[in-house]
Structures are given as C-alpha cells and as structure tokens.
C-alpha cells in the first residue's frame, strides 16, 4: 500500500493511485439501486426521501427499480406480515449479487407496535440477512439517508480477499435462502435457524 502522504503528493502531480479493491467498492457504494418496494407506512417516508427536499440522488441511490433483477439494495419499508414474508424472501432471492438489505422501521426490525399480532412477522432478519437497521416508526427521511450512508461505509470497508470477505464472496455461503411456506398455524419454518442468532438475554443479578 502507498502511504497517504505520498499519495497526496502524487495526486498533486496528476497521478492517482488506487487499489482495485478501493475502486471496486467506490463504484459499487455510490450507485446502489434500491428495489421499488413499499410495504406499509415507511414506504411513504422512503418516497419522501427520494423527492426533491431530501433527494436521495445525492447519494447515488435514486434509481428505484421495479424489478428485483435490476436492484442491489432492498429497503424493507414496513410491516412484513406472515402472508407477505414468502414474497419478500423470494424477491430477495431474485436479486443479483452483491445484494444488501436495509430494515427500515420498527416493524421490519422486530414487528414494532404490531408485534403482539398473530399475523405479523417479528423481524425480517429471521429469513434474510440484514445489513443496516433503521429504528423509528416511521424513521424520518434523514434517518433513511443516514442508514444509506452507513451501508455505504460498510461497503467501503469490504475486503475482496482473505478470511474477512463479505458473504457474497464466500463460496460456501448461500446467495438464496429458503422461502417459508404458509403453514396451518405459522410460517413453516418459523425462522431460518442458520441465519438468525439472537443474543441470549442475560438478566443482571
């Protein structure tokens, strides 16, 4: 690696040095194409974030694609019910790699105010891996932008090689996850145990 001072000195001489990894992450993080996918209330704030005042285009993520085949960021904006969860997982499976998920709002994170309901999934991270969680009910558009920037930082820090490679560069990690079926009582399976590892709750003595 070239040290920072030398690199600055060279850039003053119109010589730019970079590594392929940096170039690759730079290109990808600045043109995230989100899936045009609204579930409930949070979708309105997602639309508001893409409008003139908040202008998600400043971060290169304004190209909302109607088809999952063209998108690489899924913003799960709203309550995921048990009837809708299989479709959400299927849409995720249809997205090309590398793909990222933002869980926007309390409902997508944990079920939120509807957690006690019999028909509401208690968090989309039971079925698909989530990169960034944005709390709020609904989160303000600024919070969504902050979540997007957080995801961009995460992408910028990704390593292309070595043991710290992200999920989509590991051969043994799946790029598709099993789609739950709508069983007689609950979704079957109720969670993907290989994916979902909640931290055990330890009560203070």
């Amino acid at each position: 690696m070239v040290e920072e001072g030398l690199r600055n000195e060279l850039s003053r001489q119109n010589i730019f040095l970079t590594s392929i990894q940096e170039l690759y992450n730079w290109g990808r993080r600045n043109s995230l194409w989100p899936l045009n996918f609204g579930l409930a209330c949070c979708a309105i704030e997602m639309i508001a974030a893409s409008m003139a005042r908040f202008d998600i285009a400043r971060f290169g993520a304004e190209v909302f694609r109607p088809s999952p085949r063209q998108a690489d960021l899924m913003i799960v904006a709203g309550t995921v019910t048990k009837k809708m969860a299989p479709m959400v997982v299927r849409l995720y499976n249809q997205m090309p790699e590398p793909k990222y998920v933002i869980a926007m709002g309390a409902c997508a994170i944990s079920g939120g105010p509807f957690k006690r309901g019999y028909n509401v999934l208690k968090g989309i991270d039971r079925y698909i891996p989530v990169d960034v969680y944005i709390p709020g009910c609904p989160p303000r558009p600024e919070a969504l932008l902050h979540g997007l920037i957080t995801l961009q930082r995460k992408i910028a820090g990704e390593r292309l090689t070595g043991p710290e490679r992200p999920r989509h560069l590991r051969e043994l990690e799946p790029s598709e996850y099993p789609i739950p079926a709508y069983g007689p009582y609950d979704l079957d399976p109720p969670k993907n145990t290989e994916l979902w590892h909640p931290k055990p709750f330890v009560r203070d003595a």
Binding site: G78, T81, K83, R116, G117, Y118, N119
Partner: peptide, 9 residues
C-alpha cells in the same frame, strides 16, 4: 398482505 390485527390489538 398487510393484515396487522388492528381491531384485536
């Protein structure tokens, strides 16, 4: 697809 049990809650 967005039945959130409002009435029961």
């Amino acid at each position: 697809y967005l039945h959130r049990n409002h009435e029961k809650l």
